[in-house]
């Protein structure tokens, strides 16, 4: 790096500059920068919104077969500390506008690399989970990230019967994590050998979310059915 002398010789304002000039320069640059950013923000806003919507739509369509349109609903259910927490979920409708199912996001922070966020589809009429898709995970490539690539693990959730108790609306059997090859109930989730922590975290996420959200979703069914009109 250059010495201080050298630097001073190169910059053509050797006299001390007044504070006003400094403030003026900074303010000028900041103003131009602000205007520029506002323009760029306006210019890209629509595209970014479209991208985000396209992404959730793709996830919902993926998880709920036969859905052509979707709508966002809000439900309030007791969180882990008993306080009600409001969560958004998606209701999917087929071409005739009839309710197909709901897609709900679930997350668990006990993954190998921190939070794992998944979305799962649920068909209230059949009381069945359609499948699970990992939205966000920082699991180890080749090991923990098999929760999103391992076909056998994904198959656990596809078409899983999750009957609700008619009175309490709670699942009769909650999701249970079991070792590979040991499932004997539809609600048993067979883990991935070598990725125990990640597959346990996914199971926990879906179990907690089904116990929390499904009773509320069932209470809202009429509203959901009306939703598409």
């Amino acid at each position: 790096m250059t010495t201080a002398n050298h630097a001073a010789a190169q910059i053509p304002t050797p006299q001390p500059t007044g504070s006003l000039a400094m403030i003026g320069t900074l303010a000028g640059i900041a103003f131009v920068s602000g205007v520029l950013l506002a323009l760029v923000y306006e210019g890209t806003y629509d595209r970014i919104q479209q991208n985000q919507q396209a992404r959730t739509r793709a996830a919902v369509l993926d998880i709920l077969p036969g859905v052509v349109s979707q709508q966002v609903f809000e439900a309030s259910a007791p969180g882990p500390d008993g306080q009600p927490v409001t969560q958004e979920f998606f209701a999917g409708y087929d071409a005739s506008g009839a309710l197909v199912g709901v897609a709900i996001e679930a997350s668990d922070s006990g993954g190998y690399g921190g939070e794992i966020r998944v979305i799962y589809g649920y068909l209230p009429d059949k009381q069945e989970i359609t499948g699970m898709k990992v939205l966000l995970s920082r699991e180890t490539p080749g090991l923990g990230d098999r929760i999103s690539t391992d076909a056998a693990f994904q198959a656990n959730f596809a078409g899983m019967q999750l009957a609700l108790d008619p009175d309490s609306k709670q699942p009769v059997h909650s999701l249970t994590y079991v070792k590979p090859g040991e499932a004997d109930k539809p609600t048993d989730v067979e883990g991935i050998s070598g990725a125990t922590i990640s597959s346990q975290a996914v199971t926990r996420a879906v179990r907690a979310s089904t116990e929390r959200m499904l009773p509320v979703v069932h209470d809202m069914l009429d509203e959901l059915r009306r939703g598409s009109q």
Partner: peptide
């Protein structure tokens, strides 16, 4: 002015970074 040059540079750089970000 050389006293505020680093601050100015950072604002200029940050502007373009935000543009790239969007």
């Amino acid at each position: 002015p050389k006293q505020v040059r680093i601050a100015s540079y950072i604002v200029i750089i940050a502007t373009f970074v935000t543009i790239v970000d969007y």
